[in-house]
Design a protein around this nucleic acid. Structure first.
Lengths: 330, 330
DNA sequence: AAATGATTTCGAAGCGCTTCGACACCTGAC
DNA sequence: GTCAGGTGTCGAAGCGCTTCGAAATCATTT
C-alpha cells in the first residue's frame, strides 16, 4: 500500500498536479466541475498531503512550538488547561503543536526555528531576565510570550491584566464596606527583581484604594508558614482595624488562612480574604478570587501568533480579570 | 539573512553536497580531514538542516506523536511526569514530540500518520475498547501504548506490572504479620468491562495471599464517600479479624481512610493500609504505596518506539512495581 | 609498470509539493 | 471577423535534502 501522492490524485481526476494543488489551497480559481472531480478523487484515494513536501515547497510547516516549563513548582491544572487550549486553538487554524520543554533552553529554540520545523513559537512562563528573550528578538520566526519579561519592547506578550486585578480586588472589598485593607504579595525578592506582575498588582491595588479613599497597605509575603504567620501578625498589630486582605501569592494563601485562624480572626466574619491565584486552589479553600485564565491565555496567544504568521502586526494584550465570589468575603 | 543550506556548507568547505550529507549522517566513511573541514564550515555558517527537506528525502520526520488524554479526571502530576520524560527521552534519540489531544480521535491519528508528519505514535491512557486500537493495528507507522487494551495482540504496550503490584502488597502485609487481608479495587463495572489492570491486580493479590496461606478477599469499590463507607463497614462486619487493606483505586483511597476513622479503626495501629496510586496522593496521606512510575513509563515507551522505528521487533513490557513504605502500615 | 582492490568523493536523480508564467479557450466590444 | 481581456488549466522549475551508482584517488600486489 504505497502512500497516495498528489500525482495519483491528479491522474485519477484527469487533471494536472498543479490543478489539484490549487483546488486544495484555493489560491486560484478553479471551475466548479473540476474542483468537484478533484475532491472526489481525494476522497476516493484517501489522499493526505505529505507534510514535509508541503513545508519544503511552501516554506510553511503549519506547526508551532509550545515551550513549557515542565519543571516542578508550576501549577499543573493551569499548565494543562493552557496546553489543551493551545492545541485545540492551533488545530482550528490548521496547525499542529510541537512540544518542547524549557530545559533545552535557547539552543532548542534555535534548533527548531532554524530547521524550519515550526513557523512560530509560544513560550510560557517567561522569566523577567530570560536568556531566550534576546534570541527571540532576532529570530525570523514570530513568537508570543505568556507573561511579560523585563523589556517587552518589540515582543508580543499575553498576560492577565494584573493592574486591573489588583484594582478589582480593592474595589470588591470597598463595595463590601471595608475601609482598611491590605495586599499580601509575592516574596520581597520578587519585587526587588522588578518582576512586572507583582508590582503591577500592587500598583493597581493601591491606586484603586486611594481612589476610593480607603486605608490600604501592601506588603511582601514569604512562603513558609512561620514567615507568613509572623507577617500576618505584624500586619494586624500595626493595623488593628484591618478587615480586608488580598493575597497574591498562591503558595502562601493556605498559610495566610492558617495564620488568621491562629490569630482568632474568622473568615469571612472578621476578615474578608480575596485571592489572586489558580482556580483549583481558590476552589478548594472556597475563596473569593481572581483566577488565572489559562484557557483564554492559550487561545489568545495562538490567535496572536497566527496573526503574526500572516504578517499582521500584533501588540501585546492584557486579559481582563474576572472576580469569582465565593465564601471568603462578605 | 537567507537561511544556510547544505549547498552553502558544501561550497564553503569545497566539497560536494553529498559529502556534507554523509559527514552529518555518518552513513559513509569520510576521511578525517574532510570531515573536520565540513564540520568547521557547519559551525562557522551556523547550519541547521531543513527538517522538511530531510523528511521528504529520507522518509523520516524524526518526530513522534504524543497523544495525551487532556480531559479532566487524569492525575496531572502523573501526566506531567510522563510527558516530560517522553520529551526528554525522545530528544536523546534526536526526535521531537508532536503534542496531540485524544479528542481529535482516530482522525487526528490518521491525519498525522498519513501526512508523514511523525514516524511513530505514543498513546497514553488507552481504553479497553478504544476505537483507535484497530486503526493503530493497520497503520504503517509503529506505535506504543501506555496501558493494555482488551486485545493487545500485535501491539506494543507498556504498563506497570499490576499482577506483581497486587502480590507485593499482599507480601508486604504478610511480612508484617497480618493474617487476614482485603483488596478494595476498582468499581464493579470496571471488572465487568474486563479491564485488564484491575483484574490483574486482583489476581496477583489473591495468588500471593494463597501462597502465603493468608485469608484474603477482594471486593470492588465505588468512589463516593457513602458507598465506600458502607463497603468498608460490610467488609469489617464480615471479617472482624481484618487487619490489612490494599486500596487500588486512587479516587477512593481518601474515603477509605475516612471510613476507617469513622469505624473507630486507627491506621496503622488497628489496620494497615497500602495504596496502589500516584505518588502525590500517597505522599499527601503518608500512605505506604506502590506508585505509578510515570517517568519510567515514558522512558520505556520511547525506547520501545525507537526500537520499532529501527525495524526491531518490540514486545510489550511490564514495569516492576516498587513499594514505598510510609506511615500507614506496621 | 600494470592491474587490483579499497577508500573516498562526486554528480545526479529523485522525494512530493507549491507556484510562476504561459497557453488555450471563451466572452463581448468594436 | 478580429482583438482585448478574462477564466481555467497546464507544465516545469524549484524547495533542500538523501542516496545510489560511478568516478577518482591511492595503496598494494603481481
Amino acid at each position: 500500500m504505497r502512500t497516495v501522492t498528489i500525482a495519483d490524485v491528479a491522474r485519477h481526476a484527469g487533471v494536472a498536479v498543479s490543478t489539484v494543488s490549487y483546488v486544495l489551497s484555493g489560491k486560484r480559481a478553479i471551475s466548479a466541475t473540476t474542483r468537484q472531480r478533484v475532491l472526489d478523487s481525494v476522497r476516493v484515494l484517501g489522499y493526505h498531503p505529505n507534510a514535509g513536501a508541503r513545508a519544503l515547497a511552501s516554506k510553511r510547516a503549519n506547526v508551532i512550538a509550545l515551550v513549557l516549563p515542565l519543571r516542578a513548582g508550576m501549577n499543573l491544572p493551569v499548565l494543562m488547561q493552557f496546553a489543551t487550549s493551545v492545541v485545540a486553538t492551533a488545530r482550528q487554524y490548521d496547525h499542529d503543536v510541537l512540544l518542547m520543554t524549557a530545559d533545552e533552553g535557547p539552543d532548542g529554540i534555535r534548533r527548531v526555528a532554524a530547521s524550519a520545523m515550526v513557523d512560530g513559537l509560544l513560550l510560557m512562563d517567561v522569566e523577567v531576565r530570560d536568556t531566550r528573550v534576546p534570541l527571540l528578538r532576532d529570530l525570523a520566526e514570530p513568537s508570543v510570550l505568556i507573561g511579560f519579561p523585563a523589556d517587552a519592547e518589540g515582543l508580543t506578550c499575553v498576560d492577565l491584566d494584573f493592574h486591573r486585578a489588583g484594582a478589582i480586588c480593592a474595589a470588591h472589598l470597598a463595595e463590601r464596606g471595608h475601609r482598611e485593607i491590605a495586599l499580601l504579595g509575592a516574596p520581597g525578592v520578587v519585587y526587588e527583581r522588578g518582576t512586572g506582575f507583582a508590582e503591577r498588582t500592587r500598583a493597581g491595588f493601591l491606586a484603586e484604594a486611594t481612589e476610593r479613599d480607603l486605608h490600604a497597605v501592601a506588603v511582601p509575603c514569604a512562603e513558609t508558614y512561620d514567615e507568613v504567620a509572623s507577617a500576618v501578625k505584624l500586619l494586624f498589630d500595626a493595623h488593628p482595624g484591618l478587615t480586608g486582605v488580598v493575597v497574591h501569592n498562591e503558595a502562601a494563601v493556605g498559610h495566610v488562612l492558617g495564620a488568621l485562624r491562629a490569630l482568632g480572626r474568622a473568615v469571612p466574619e472578621d476578615v474578608s480574604v480575596v485571592a489572586i491565584c489558580p482556580d483549583d486552589i481558590a476552589e478548594r479553600a472556597r475563596l473569593t478570587s481572581v483566577l488565572i485564565p489559562a484557557e483564554e491565555l492559550g487561545r489568545e496567544a495562538v490567535r496572536l501568533l497566527m496573526a503574526k504568521l500572516d504578517g499582521l502586526p500584533a501588540g501585546s494584550i492584557l486579559l481582563e480579570p474576572r472576580l469569582t465570589i465565593r465564601e471568603s468575603t462578605r
